[in-house]
Structure formats: structure tokens, C-alpha cells
Amino acid sequence: MSASVLRIDGLRVKVAGTEILRGVDLEVRSGEVHALMGPNGSGKSTLSHALMGRGDYEVTGGSVTIDGEELLGLPTWERARRGLFLAMQYPVEVPGVPIDALVGAALRAAGRADGEAARELVAAEARALGLREELLRRGVNDEYSGGEQKRAETVQLAVLRPRFAVLDEIDSGLDVDALRDVARRIARLAAEQGLGVLAITHYARLLSELRPDRVHVLLAGRVVLSGGPELADRLEERGYEGIAAEVGVDELTVGVPRPPEPFADPTAGSDPFADPFA
């Protein structure tokens, strides 16, 4: 596979009228593993969805290219066709659409394989990643556990073979075994297939398996610090506040309410049985 470059240049993004990303610059090359770390609210998930072209994210400036070809302005599926993959933090349940049907449709659309081949590729990759065979007969993510969802995202990543993968908190909701399986598979894809990886996380534990070449710190919508793998250790030691003080940034997060957590208990925080006269 020839070497490619994913370049993010001065990316500015608004969500619901508020600027969340304030000029993000990053460059990932084939076979490289980059970690992007930041606290909740720093704009990590906004970056991943803005890269993939989700509808409710308004890009107000900058560019995102693969080998010089602009992705911004392209619909989501065209970005995927140009080699970008997003492993989602909250993969969406699609009842009645099993992984092989989904992957088969994607491969067919790209003229790369037929349905039968997709089924075999998915089955083999699922075995390798320890995803229960029974889940392959269900709709993708339909009543999967958190760990199963992340294994399933990795199965799709491995079968679809994109040039670049953005992993949005792929470590969240994973037990130690699943984390190891997923991280090792992705590290191998980078080493053997030349996959370029941008792993977004706020925990260092993913990085002990994934072994990034570069680590970046995202605070309040900007990459404020980049370095080698040792930066993750420094972050572990000093925390985001320590790093912020070091680089002279006042705020860690962007001053907007976080989007509602999709699996949150809707009654949390307001006790429905509270005495209104108390």
C-alpha cells in the first residue's frame, strides 16, 4: 500500500451555534498511530464526527484532506469511500441489519467484493477478535454489550481496510481482555497494512497496548501540545490541569453544555419522588 497522509488544517467547527473546535491541526501518515487526548468537553467527539461529516456539525473553517483531496463538503459515505473510517464511541443499533450485510453493502458499493465474500471475511475476523458468532446473525449492535460493540467496530475496520481510522474512545466500556484484543488488532493493522490511526481517548490505558508514535493534547478545541509516547506518561502524572498550566491555557473545555448522554438515565438528577414542599 502506498503511503498516504491525512491532514487536518485549522479545523473550526460549531455545534448548535457554539464554536467547539477552534483551529485543530493534525497530520497522520500511513502506518502511524497517533493518540489525541483530552478531558471531557475538550472537543474530542466533535472532531471525530466533523471528520466523518455528521449533519449537525457546522464546519466554519479549515480543511481535511487525504493525499491532498479535500473531504469537507463530501457526504459521509464518500469520505468513507476515500479511505476514512470512524469507530464510534456509541455505535448505533440497526435492527435487522447484520454486520455482514452492512459490510457487504459497503464493499459492493466500492466494487470490492460480493455478499458471499463479505460473509466469510466477517466470520473469520469475528473469530479472530472473539466476537460471538451468534451476534453475527443479529442486527449490528442490537443488544450487544459495550465490549461486543467495540469488538464489532474493530471487525468492520479490519474487513473494510480503510486508509485512516479515527477511534472515538474505543476503550470506553471495554474490559481488560477486550481492550487488549481490540488494541492489538488495530496495532497490527497499522504495522502490517499501513493503517493510519488517530485514537481519541482520555485514558492512558489504551495506549499501553496501542503504543502510539505521537501523542497530542486537545484542550478547549485546540491541540495545545504534541510529543512522543512519553507525553502520555507526563499527562498521567500531571493531569490536564497541570498540562494546561504548563502551556499557559486557561480553560480545559469549551463552555457549552455537553450533548445529552444517549444512555443516561432520564430521571437522574431529578428525584421523581422528592417532596416538593421540602
Binding site: 459521509t76 470512524l86 464510534m88 440497526v94 459497503a106 468492520q156
Partner: peptide, 13 residues
């Protein structure tokens, strides 16, 4: 979200 998920894998609309 379902539409976006499928399209993010390269499936046309």
C-alpha cells in the same frame, strides 16, 4: 443516527 452509521461505513444513502 442509523443512516449516519451505515453511511460512515461507505454505504451509499
Amino acid at each position: 443516527d442509523q443512516r449516519y452509521y451505515l453511511e460512515s461505513r461507505g454505504v451509499p444513502p
